[in-house]
């Protein structure tokens, strides 16, 4: 009897060991597969960028030298100093950062409010209105370019200005139209952000908000104090998208004629031409080196911002993990 128990125990032990060993092997293989996939995909993304980065250090001689592949022989930082000078990099970056962060802040607040309204309340025509949100996502902005342009060339609110001054105000060549449109959830991809917030708020359990309402908090206090905190992943996601798209936007900036020296996205569109003309370089392959330097300089702030926000991402989530 004793022997059989011992035997049985030994058997269980061996089985356990074998299973653990098996798990170790599969775990290792899975990890390997994961690494291969991640490295492959990173390569797909980084490939063009690496060649751009190395080109941005080339001198014209390096460019023409067939021996040079990735690492320049002469190498120079001249492209960067020239681009920083031409784009007035620090100044432009500062004004861009202020402009973009203001727009992002407005966009997150306004779109999250609209998304919350659609997600958690019932009111007449809700489905129809939400279909309108989808319509604003789908309708190409090109189609509405002309009406918007006309609207802001002769800007007026319900005919009040026409009554007082006899004519509207021309708001073009300033960023004011963009601020107005963003505040009213019609800015760059605002419809999409309303949609994203709507989906996130619908995914939050109802109990959170009911508890707050029971305690006598008003709708707006519940919203800012509780719902927005719980939707932190959504807030961060939308902030990141909004920041990147506003930073990179040319459509609205061109349509309303925002001054070139204010925005990075406007600067980068002209930098190649400007340097080519001012330094008298006719070869576009050479002026392209400057453009690559400019692209790298434009990328760096966004990537740093993303890395900082991404760390918050995890923290925010761990905090919101307490509820639910």
């Amino acid at each position: 009897m004793k022997a059989t128990i011992k035997e049985r125990l030994g058997q269980i032990d061996r089985e356990h060991l074998r299973r653990r060993l098996g798990r170790g092997v599969t775990g290792f293989l899975l990890g390997l597969l994961k690494a291969v996939i991640l490295i492959g995909i990173s390569y797909i993304i980084l490939g063009p960028l690496i060649s751009m980065l190395s080109s941005s250090f080339f001198t014209p001689a390096d460019l023409k030298n067939p021996v040079v592949v990735l690492f320049p022989i002469e190498g120079t930082l001249g492209n960067y100093t020239q681009v920083i000078h031409t784009m007035q990099y620090p100044k432009t970056l500062l004004s861009t950062v202020i402009y973009v962060s203001a727009l992002t802040f407005i966009q997150v607040i306004m779109c999250s409010m609209a998304g919350y309204g659609f997600a958690r309340f019932n009111f007449p025509f809700k489905k129809l209105l939400f279909a309108c949100v989808v319509l604003t996502i789908v309708l190409p902005a090109d189609t509405l370019m002309l009406p918007w342009y006309m609207e802001f060339r002769d800007f007026d609110v319900l005919g009040i200005l026409h009554l007082i001054r006899g004519s509207g105000v021309n708001l073009l060549t300033s960023p004011i139209p963009i601020y107005i449109m963003t505040t009213l959830c019609c800015g760059l991809r605002s419809g999409l952000f309303v949609y994203i917030f709507n989906q996130f708020f619908r995914g939050l359990p109802k109990e959170i908000e009911e508890a707050a309402l029971m305690d006598g908090a008003g709708a707006f206090r519940t919203y800012f104090g509780i719902m927005l905190v719980n939707a932190m992943p959504a807030v961060l996601t939308v902030s990141i998208f909004s920041l990147v798209w506003q930073y990179n936007d040319t459509f609205y900036a061109q349509l309303f004629g925002v001054p070139t020296n204010l925005l990075m996205s406007r600067r980068i569109a002209t930098v190649q031409e400007t340097i080519g003309n001012s330094l008298n370089i006719l070869d576009t392959a050479v002026t392209q080196l400057y453009l690559y330097a400019a692209v790298i300089l434009m990328l760096v702030p966004v990537v740093i911002m993303y890395c900082v926000m991404q760390r918050r991402f995890v923290e925010g989530v761990e905090r919101s993990g307490l509820v639910g």
Partner: peptide, 26 residues
């Protein structure tokens, strides 16, 4: 439902002003 309407009011104004008017013009 009134509170919900208040939450979406900014969006509604913007929609009617820029998209509604623009779409009719389009």
């Amino acid at each position: 439902s009134v509170t919900g309407f208040v939450f979406i009011t900014p969006w509604l104004i913007g929609f009617l002003w820029f998209y509604g008017k623009g779409a009719i013009q389009a």
